[in-house]
């Protein structure tokens, strides 16, 4: 993934966008971003932070508060959150930390930035309705195992409803950024 400045490079005043936190405070999921007082409970209890050299939820929240929008949205680190929701459950300020990470990811995705593995799942959902394309062999094996056959899905209906949410646009932008 393209990366301009790493999260740990020194911050320049010109990078700071004071409007970003206000923008975030109006989005469903990141409304409480201004309530974070940087106690660090999220990072100290994060199972990913324990084993990753770069993922620190407190840092991402602070950078988002400061308005280092480009740096946060282009960071690969943003995609390391496992969505275990430990931070959300333990935040003393009742901030849905994992939801703020989700909002930041959604904003990155609007620029066509997200990991290949999610692109594959999104494509699979558009093609088959399922996050993984279930091979014909598996379907045949179900019969041998005496499991009921999977119900027939109509992927066209999935494509219709997902057209309304703009998934196809995100995938097109991804292709422009990272495609062959």
């Amino acid at each position: 993934m393209t990366q301009t400045l790493s999260l740990n490079d020194p911050i320049k005043a010109s990078e700071i966008n004071p409007k970003f936190r206000l923008e975030l405070s109006k989005i469903d999921g990141s409304e409480k971003i201004l309530q974070c007082f940087q106690c660090g409970t999220c990072t100290s209890d994060c199972p990913i932070a324990k084993f990753s050299e770069s993922y620190r939820p407190r840092q991402l929240i602070r950078m988002a508060q400061l308005g280092l929008k480009e740096r946060v949205l282009k960071s690969e680190t943003l995609w390391l959150c496992a969505s275990c929701f430990t931070c959300t459950d333990r935040c003393p300020q009742d901030i849905e930390v994992a939801s703020i990470i989700r909002v930041l990811r959604n904003l990155a995705a609007e620029k066509g930035i997200f990991p290949t593995v999610i692109r594959e799942q999104a494509n699979s959902i558009l093609e088959s309705g399922y996050a993984y394309k279930i091979p014909l062999l598996r379907e045949k094996k179900r019969v041998q195992l005496d499991l009921p056959t999977l119900p027939k899905n109509d992927p066209e209906k999935i494509r219709i409803i997902l057209k309304k949410t703009g998934i196809q646009n995100l995938l097109e932008k991804w292709e422009n950024n990272f495609g062959e």
Binding site: I118, G129, I167
Partner: peptide, 26 residues
Amino acid sequence: EMPEFNCCGLPLDMISHESMLTLSAR
């Protein structure tokens, strides 16, 4: 058996919250 179903939506929450809500609601 579900007469028909699709992905619960969770994998798409990362890139589009609204897509997750829509797939799940379906």
